[in-house]
Design a protein around this nucleic acid. Structure first.
Lengths: 114, 114
DNA sequence: TCGTCATATCGTCATATTGCAATAAGTTTA
DNA sequence: TAAACTTATTGCAATATGACGATATGACGA
């Protein structure tokens, strides 16, 4: 049976989110359930690549899949994932701001010297 | 100059967190600033491996490094990282619970059939 | 200045990940 | 049942990652 320890799961979730295409997929699916046929034209990737990315998100328990006739529909399973991404963005933003401030201080220093 | 787009940064942050050793390092450092010489004996990994992991966390802006004499001290730079990990754990927990519940339902069904 | 301590960095191997084209599998339609 | 659709899966090449031992670097003490 598949081991489902919290530690393994959190690595799985974090790894699933560590890819730009997959983050874009989540953003796309934030608009609601979509079938692969709708997703494909929205992304500049091969069908197999998109399918695999969707599967990785599904395996991580982030997406849910539903089959309807010949279509496979994916949707966000746990919206908490967006809180998580928001948190990451906050952290990233702090760094961008710090970087910008460092630039200003450098600029000021150079001006004072001149 | 290093490009610092939010998108790149969030992938960097998420990738940095997608490794069990690095998550353990963060937990270890939640106790406060520690030098590498203290960290090493607490982990079953080679010195070069730990050093690299610390550097990845540093590059992602999660750790801060301070040199004091011949020692290198690392500490958590942005404690928000723990909120983030907590959020991941919540998501992981939901899945574990769902998994357990599914097991119970299965069990109940089997009992009813017998 | 030499040796030692503490740590980073390099070179290398094994493994994982990502991307694509090709193919398979399951549904619907003719 | 065959053909057409839709999507997953497979097989590979290219690249990234993680681990380790070996080596380099930088600070301190003798």
């Amino acid at each position: 049976m598949t081991q489902k320890s919290i530690s393994d799961l959190r690595i799985k979730i974090l790894s699933a989110l560590s890819d730009p295409t997959r983050l874009e997929l989540l953003e796309y699916l934030s608009g609601g359930e979509r079938c692969v046929c709708e997703i494909l034209p929205a992304f500049q990737r091969s069908q197999s690549t998109i399918s695999k990315h969707l599967n990785i998100l599904h395996e991580a328990g982030i997406l849910e899949r539903r089959i309807d006739g010949k279509r496979n529909l994916y949707r966000i399973k746990d919206p908490q994932v967006f809180d998580l991404i928001k948190k990451v963005d906050e952290m990233a933003l702090v760094q961008v701001v710090q970087f910008a401030e460092a630039g200003k201080i450098l600029e000021k220093t150079l001006l004072q010297r001149s």
